[in-house]
Write a protein that binds this DNA or RNA. Sequence first.
DNA 1: GAAATTGTTGTAAACGATTGCGGTTTTTTT
DNA 2: AAAAAAACCGCAATCGTTTACAACAATTTC
Lengths: 335, 335
Amino acid sequence: MDKKIATIQDVAAQAGVSTATVSRTLSKPSVVAKATREAVLAAVDRTGYRVNATASNLRRQRTGSVIALVPNLANPFFSQILAGINSVLHPVGYGLLIADTQAGPNLEDRLSAYLQSSMADGLILFDGTLSPEALKNPGRPPVVLACEWMDDDLPSVCTENARGAALAVGHLFDMGHRQIGHITGPQGNVLSETRLTGYRDALAERGLAARPDWVFDGDFSMDSGAAAAQKWLRLERRPTALFCSSDEMAIGFMGAVQHRGIRVPEDVSLVGFDNIEVVEHLTPALTTIRQRRTQIGEQAARLLLDMIEAGTLSGPSQTVEVELICRDSVARISD
Amino acid sequence: MDKKIATIQDVAAQAGVSTATVSRTLSKPSVVAKATREAVLAAVDRTGYRVNATASNLRRQRTGSVIALVPNLANPFFSQILAGINSVLHPVGYGLLIADTQAGPNLEDRLSAYLQSSMADGLILFDGTLSPEALKNPGRPPVVLACEWMDDDLPSVCTENARGAALAVGHLFDMGHRQIGHITGPQGNVLSETRLTGYRDALAERGLAARPDWVFDGDFSMDSGAAAAQKWLRLERRPTALFCSSDEMAIGFMGAVQHRGIRVPEDVSLVGFDNIEVVEHLTPALTTIRQRRTQIGEQAARLLLDMIEAGTLSGPSQTVEVELICRDSVARISD
DNA sequence: GAAATTGTTGTAAACGATTGCGGTTTTTTT
DNA sequence: AAAAAAACCGCAATCGTTTACAACAATTTC
């Protein structure tokens, strides 16, 4: 039947009113009289009309979508956060655009392109390696930092990383461990560094020394966990426990040492970070710091929406709780 | 300085040309004279102008983005596919919108809303439980089915599920197994069913009977794998090997049985499906069917782009290869 | 050297909605 | 019953581009 897709004009003609009335019926029904409203709605129904988002957005000077900038989309860690974001964005008519910061080369350029090009009404940033300065264009849309806490000027939603680290080494200490190592996240990443200093502080607080050869460089990936395992194996004096800055690294480490016949937790205890879904199905199930990823996404999205509506560039930074989940990867040491 | 964001008018004024020329300089530089072109580009630079995507899209009758409809965004399986999609979309100026089919209730309605509302130039669909009819609106944008092969009219990109199943049970058979079970994916899902019949056919081909109590209902999740393990444990006569329709279910199964002191692969052999990243770090590392997720995304995106450009609603369905990855979760049986 | 061709630019009409402003009614107030 | 207020609706401008068409200049062809 209808080859062409109906426009607001068609509806107006059908209903015998002006386009203004049609528009109002759809956005603010209360201001149009009942009779006309019904006529319009009937016409909408008949024509199968749907408002053209592009035209509407142009007129209203907005885009109706927000961009989530994630480093490495393929990392499953983010998908749950994205789900959280989407769950608050979708009901209020916003779309979620995703972009991978890893994809191209000239990141800072692309970032400022995103900021300026009016492709989105706001931006949620997950990449902790960006310089905050790049984000401070005048006339930019609101930005929310998620998972990172780079800058005091920019609002952010962030897990209590330092506290997580403290919980982890505290638990290891309580279980009798005195030789506690650490696998870090990528260098230059704020998360990594907060967790690292959290680890150091927690040790110091308990009168323990942080041996530099007991902290292994990682990058959150399983492979880097496995690489740390190789270094650990070569150590003349090995820490009896490791706090890993991500579950994935803990998995990589565990896989690598088990492969060599080393038992977890009897020979080495592990605590991860994130509580990704898989870790409770491992053998042994991994003790870890839980980070509510959906909640991070939800809070970030809500914060951003508030900023968009209020037209402000700043907002209240928020924090999401962490929690120690005890499973089977930490042994009690008695001596 | 510049409070307001520059429009094409500003650039035109600065460069002393018309807006038409500015537009042309940016889109088809070859048709404008060198001198003017340089003047325009200089003005663009000076003003920091970026084309307003919304206005451009409105005029050009497109949206510049495609929607990926995924069931359950939180599932890490999809994130890699999305990365693949994004990697082809982004370079050519398309944005990727993601939507969760699980989120709301009236799915079919929302779907047709997506299709009509001109929010996207095309759609990539991952949800195998939708009725194909809903997709056949007249005047709809092109649709590509990914991971699923629901319908002959709709182009799709799909892994060789049946062949994957055949490879899996073939390998188990070759290793001496004669009692081979299966954990299925969710019912009503085309993937699950193709793999299930692939499994049955492979058994039949080798003269093996498919015992109904050896196929366990699952839904791709780890928990459902663990649940299958409980049933398996209660069996009076247990299959010596299981082909799992997803790696996650294999992980759940493995974790659960190991928890009971049962050894993999000595007591039960497992083959998964997908080759998600984690499985090679498990102990034992999981033998599985590799499915190139990034490639699925890339092919689907390219196919869709072709359709969008050609303005057609159909295209060549494609297939992506599977491959058996042998690791340590299958034991050789000699008897 | 006139005619035809090619190259370069400007004019102005779209694209499809939203909304300030003002004009009619209708209702309420006095 | 006249005046004031409220409710309802239409006109037309506007959002920022793109692009057919026409105009004009420069070049080529005969």
